[in-house]
């Protein structure tokens, strides 16, 4: 199992997911540290014992405005630019993740969530509970539904998932590039067996 930030990418869309996550993470870390650093620096630099500034708060007097429209516009501009960058890249990746890539040879599995397990139906009609075997280096499509309550079908290592809803089908895809065994788990509370609603994905 991949863990934390350790990258061990079993295929798509995990690779792309990480590239997006890393962009958010680095920008977020940068912005967060600068901003928090600035705050702590100001607090320290202008602490009362060393500050030469005047005391402008007088009991019973409504304080005047203190602002600087230019600086406010800078705040506005900077946050907008950062979020615009993030949003644009996110939209690109979202379109990629939500659209099954064109391919001649797509391996399609129907997934039925139930309290509490996963049933997989192969193209030839075979039904298996608890384990699904898919081919390496091919596009694999999961058509996900639920037989009872709200579940979430999650392919943990592949960094993708979709809700399993009764009466509806949701579709996600992966393209495994590493053979191995991976974990499928339910990520939406669905009753007392929720924690045990696990299945295995085997890539061969």
């Amino acid at each position: 199992m991949t863990h934390g930030m350790v990258l061990q990418i079993p295929g798509e869309p995990a690779g792309t997911w990480y590239s997006l996550f890393n962009l958010y993470f680095s920008l977020g870390l940068l912005v967060g540290s600068v901003v928090v650093g600035m705050l702590l620096y100001f607090v320290w630099k202008y602490r009362e014992s060393v500050s030469n500034e005047s005391d402008d708060i007088k009991p019973g007097v409504v304080p005047g405005e203190r602002s600087n429209i230019k600086l406010i516009m800078v705040f506005f501009g900077l946050t907008s630019i950062i979020l615009f960058t993030l949003a644009s890249y996110s939209i690109l990746v979202t379109n990629y993740v939500e659209k099954v890539p064109k391919a001649d040879d797509i391996f399609e599995v129907t997934v039925q969530g139930f309290q509490w397990g996963w049933r997989f139906i192969y193209p030839n009609g075979t039904e298996v509970v608890g384990e699904v075997v898919v081919p390496k280096d091919k596009i694999v499509v999961f058509r996900i539904t639920s037989m009872d309550v709200f579940h979430k079908f999650q392919l943990i290592e592949f960094r993708t998932g979709a809700d399993a809803l009764p009466g509806a089908f949701n579709v996600i895809w992966i393209k495994p590039t590493q053979a191995g065994t991976y974990t499928i788990q339910c990520y939406e509370l669905c009753g007392i067996g929720h924690s045990l609603m696990v299945a295995t994905l085997r890539v061969v």
């Binding site: 202008y46 009362e48 406010i72 705040f75 979020l83 996110s90």
Partner: peptide, 24 residues
């Protein structure tokens, strides 16, 4: 994503309130 912009403005303004102040 865009709701973070006004929140950014609020937080940065809070932070700049400490600039050239007398922090007790």
């Amino acid at each position: 994503e865009s709701i973070s912009v006004p929140f950014g403005v609020i937080m940065l303004s809070f932070i700049f309130s400490f600039y050239k102040a007398r922090v007790r």
